[in-house]
Design a protein around this nucleic acid. Structure first.
Lengths: 256, 256
DNA sequence: TCCTCGAAGTCTACGGTGTATAATACACTG
DNA sequence: CAGTGTATTATACACCGTAGACTTCGAGGA
């Protein structure tokens, strides 16, 4: 459910770039099915998006979807492209602003997208989706980084690194949320459920002194068993300062 | 195949921390089955690790595995813990070295682990595996960061951010490799197969000028359609400089 | 208006998955 | 050596994606 394999790229490109006519008999279209699938995944996760279930929601039989979506592998790509296309509708990159604000906006937009559509963190990045949404997103992000003093290669690497960090920490957020049992409100509940059993199993309590100390401190100060969002913010901060050093511009603040 | 849901944590903890006796009738153990599963995943990917297939390799029936692995969800956790436990057997963190070398070694060890076991990048991080391997790894990494001038919280956030970056870019490497058709040697082959169809589909060639320029430059200079490894190296470099700024120590080199 | 014909939609079926359940056979303890 | 409990087995179920054959519909020409 995560590898994005088995995609027929040519079929996919056709589906991605055509203007998605609504089918007269059933009233569905590539566009409408994709939207339905994204909504379903947002609500119940990517695993809930089965062909049969999606067909049920669309009011058609399973096999009726195939002319519109290609196959399940292609459907996932369509969903990814759709989400990529709306990333900068909620969070926009300020025009003519400091490069710091632009980079931060890129991070925030992707972070928000990962929160709104947690299932995208299940899917591998790397191979780009050859569709209009992903292409527009890429263009937007590169344009924000263009002309601040980085070479093309540096821009590309920096952007990839930044997005990897965002996706990675967003994934961790998501995993922490998923592991909550129904009805639990805090991350600590999962941990406090596990902890007694774990303590018993470990036996020798002096085996992981540093980890114990750090976990305790983290729990006391943030109230969480782990804090991916904090890691995200710190990570972006570190990268910003790293870029500043490359650019040779004065760094902002004192880092605290 | 990516969400790590449905894990019975208590059953899992029992399996993770017991000393895995070999079963007299079948000759298998939690340990041996886990190793077998890791090898199989390394060779053929996580999807190849089905209960039936694994049972076949172990020389028993499918249902015979269950007392040793719990269920498939728990098996995956066992595999993750196993891999975590051997991360620092190949790449070690230098004793008493500069903090830069330590951080770099952490990144390299995790990068190498992701290369050796590509399937781990399919799986969500975040919720830690409550096992001896993962605990040891966490302890090792925190100890390397301890005492260089960061607070406990900063250490934790920095480590999480660093590992997210490594996993994220490693994933992208993996995705690029997977998308190669059989027999292809270079990333560019996949891209050059797609490109004509994509160019035709897009129509208006002036729509993504920055993306086109950057892609062209990247292709010319690296010979790749995308370069996650370069992004990894730059990302680690940026984070190192970011840490240096926080620490107030002189930065090394000029960043080029 | 009717007819034809190609495409869209449907039905059935296949091989795969994880694993619940119940029956069996074995290894260890007394 | 008998008893007991658990590892192991065989069977079965519900679900998955989708290939292939069949049916039905909508649009264009006479």
């Amino acid at each position: 459910m995560a590898k994005r394999t088995g995609v027929d790229e040519f079929k996919l490109i056709g589906l991605l770039w055509r203007d998605s006519p609504v089918s007269p008999r059933s009233g569905i279209s590539t566009q409408s099915v994709t939207t339905l699938a994204v909504d379903l995944a947002d609500r119940e996760g990517l695993d809930a998006v089965t062909i049969r279930r999606l067909a049920e929601e669309a009011g058609v039989t399973a096999m009726a979807l195939y002319p519109h979506i290609g196959g399940r592998a292609e459907l996932v790509e369509l969903m990814l492209d759709h989400v990529a296309g709306v990333t900068y509708e909620t969070v926009t990159i300020p025009e003519g602003a400091d490069w710091r604000e632009c980079v931060t906006a890129i991070a925030e937009a992707n972070w928000a997208s990962c929160q709104a559509h947690p299932w995208i963190t299940d899917l591998a990045t790397g191979r780009p989706v050859p569709g209009p949404g992903a292409s527009t997103k890429y263009e937007t992000e590169l344009r924000a980084l263009d002309g601040i003093g980085l070479t093309d290669i540096e821009m590309e690497h920096t952007l990839t690194a930044l997005l990897s960090l965002v996706q990675g920490t967003a994934r961790a957020t998501r995993a922490a949320q998923d592991s909550r049992l129904p009805g639990e409100d805090h991350d600590t509940d999962w941990w406090s459920n596990i902890e007694p059993a774990l303590t018993t199993a470990i036996g020798d309590q002096t085996r992981f002194p540093t980890a114990s100390r750090v976990s305790r401190t983290l729990g006391e100060q943030t109230g969480k068993a782990n804090d991916p969002e904090g890691a995200y913010r710190r990570g972006v901060g570190l990268i910003l300062d790293g870029i500043a050093k490359r650019l040779g511009t004065p760094t902002s603040g004192n880092g605290r």
